[in-house]
Amino acid sequence: MNASSLIATKERSALLQNQRGLAWLLAYAGILSAFALLLISNRELSLLDNAQVVYMMAGTVTAAGALIAVIMGSDAYAGERERGTLVPLLTAPISTGDLLMGKAIGLASAWGIMYLLSLPYLWAVGAGGQNLGQAIFYLGLFGTPVVLGFGYLAMALSARSGSVMSSLLTSLIILLFSASPLLIGPGLRNSAIGKALDAVNPFSGALNTYDAVIIDSDPFLSQLGRLVLVLLWLGIMFGVARLSARRPAFR
């Protein structure tokens, strides 16, 4: 097993065998459950169109996934440093690139688990309607780069600052800002500034795609521009993480 795989294995076990990791998953499932229960307890929401509900659930999965990814990313270097486990990794025969790759794969695995966990929720709110398959496919295609991009951003800040608190707060502010389309609704997004933000905001890109393909049944080709946007986001954030992880703060 190479060094990256060893790190990734450890990251996975940190999520599934460590109580802290399981608590994060529990928090994630709690967010999705709360939203699903809101749908059946709220009369107005329960009258929503089925596709609208699936769209909202896909957006919630992306937001909750990004939130957990930000927490995990902030912990990736700074948490290890604070718990005294970073130095043994840095003094082991492993390059900083391999260390980052292991962490990145670990984060991707965690998102894989969260994605799988979201499927029963999507089924529960969307079965019997149309475009459930579309929702699952596009959540994988657009949600993955958005979620992982936020995780890698937090990882970069974590490696640079060496402080979980500092990297977590900074990443959360950026995440909240990016996820604001989910909060502010379509009205404000139609303003000039809202449109400009939408054009460069990967979170908006994913949400607009969910809207287009789940609610309006738009074809795949019409989403290529947004796919490029979210893939660019992922690539840039991974590049930033690589730069920061070359010399992580370890003291």
Binding site: L45, S46, L48, A124
Partner: peptide
């Protein structure tokens, strides 16, 4: 048509956590 069916949601929303 009820778009959200509690018979499906309740087991998932309570069962997974």
């Amino acid at each position: 048509k009820p778009v959200v069916e509690s018979t499906r949601i309740l087991p998932v929303a309570l069962g997974i956590p």
